[in-house]
Design a protein around this nucleic acid. Structure first.
Lengths: 228, 228
DNA sequence: CCGTCAGTGTTGACAACGTCAACATCGTCG
DNA sequence: CGACGATGTTGACGTTGTCAACACTGACGG
């Protein structure tokens, strides 16, 4: 059966194989080559698949097929599968950073903002566990090598550091290196999120939401300035 | 990589492929069938390989080869690769539990014991990061289904819960459900360990050991009873 | 002593996967 | 218009997990 091209022969049985492309603007040489920014489409598709069915089921052939593109088209944009996964992780950190920043800005830069950030963190992880695991699960060992991934992750962490520094200047957070305090906060919430999406909390958890509140509250207590 | 046939032909070039087996006791029908408890040998080999070269490079064929056993012999003892990984994780949790218990018992059941447990936790994770990731990284989604794995992980957590309960009765730890306090502690240290073995702490970390002490100390502050 | 039989290990085969090399096409620029 | 690099396709290869069929081992009942 792998004798003649079966690629695009499944859906859309009556399609003239990429016809005239009538209204091509011809003004965007950067993203309108054959496919129109395939790179981003690949990342999006990979993200969607990972989100729906997990990393381990992600296959390059499937990604290509869903995009009506041959299985190796991807190699014009990524060195290999790991590079694609790195891009997926980067994309995750970008959205992650945004979620944290929105929470922090949403309710005022104060105690409530901190709590909201914590909730946003856990919500993010729980709403896309597989994606979160790609970001943190050591799938991308080359994280150290990919500067883009590294930088994006860094900027997500920076949101937390900046928030804590601001709270500290307002007198809400106790003295100490903001970076170090942020590390403690990050580790605590990250660990909780990991355990939560791992199902490791199943029986100890009558209500995950309630437990989330409890953990965040304890973290806040641990970093808050002692009451006057 | 994966370019040249690196299969056999590496170690022990001159061995007569399972010779006479001269001194087989012949008195142990339970574990001396063909191989003598192959199941345990498979798990041990898998653990060793994972520890040395990571999960992603673990291949069933390689495990069999190293044990001088055909590639499918494993299927007489495990349903599939995931089942083997579950056994690997179980083995990890057993050693993990032991490490925690030893630390707790080693320096007396008090504040020092708690700190020692924390160090043991991080040390365990850092000394076998790949194995630790198999235990917690969601590789075994069927964790919920394997009662053995579930139970062993549970008993490791129980060590922490019991320790906290004891400290609580001694008045060292503040009031509250021990289970819930333990969860906070676990999440915090687990999160830190995860970030540490992920290399995510690389630049924020002049000294990982020092940071470990700091995190554990903060966790203790968070759960300690308020000073009289 | 022999046949049966379950437990255990082996060989052969297959589909799926990641990846490379060679080829085809598109759009741009000299 | 022709060359050329960027982009996409086809074919093929080696590796992997897994199944089916077969072969061996040792105990047990006649």
């Amino acid at each position: 059966m792998a004798k003649f091209p079966r690629s695009a022969a499944r859906s859309r049985p009556a399609r003239p194989a990429r016809p005239a492309q009538p209204a091509r603007p011809a003004r965007k040489p950067r993203d309108a080559y054959h496919h129109g920014n395939l790179r981003q489409a690949l990342v999006d598709q990979a993200v969607a698949t990972i989100r729906d069915r997990g990393v381990e089921t992600l296959t390059l052939r499937d990604v290509g097929e869903r995009l009506r593109v041959s299985r190796t088209a991807l190699y014009r944009h990524f060195a290999d599968k790991d590079a694609l996964l790195a891009a997926v992780a980067t994309e995750g950190f970008r959205a992650f950073r945004q979620a944290l920043a929105d929470a922090w800005d949403g309710v005022g830069h104060t105690h409530a903002g901190f709590m909201q950030m914590g909730r946003a963190y856990v919500t993010f992880a729980r709403s896309r566990p597989s994606h979160y695991r790609v970001m943190f699960g050591g799938f991308v060992e080359k994280a150290n090598c990919d500067p883009d991934l590294r930088g994006t992750a860094e900027s997500a962490f920076a949101v937390l550091v900046d928030a804590l520094a601001e709270l500290q200047q307002q007198g809400f957070v106790r003295a100490g290196h903001p970076q170090e305090i942020a590390l403690f906060v990050w580790a605590s919430v990250h660990g909780f999120a990991m355990l939560a999406i791992d199902g490791q909390l199943a029986e100890h958890a009558p209500s995950l939401d309630g437990m989330t509140e409890g953990v965040i509250a304890r973290v806040w207590e641990a970093v808050a300035a002692p009451p006057a």
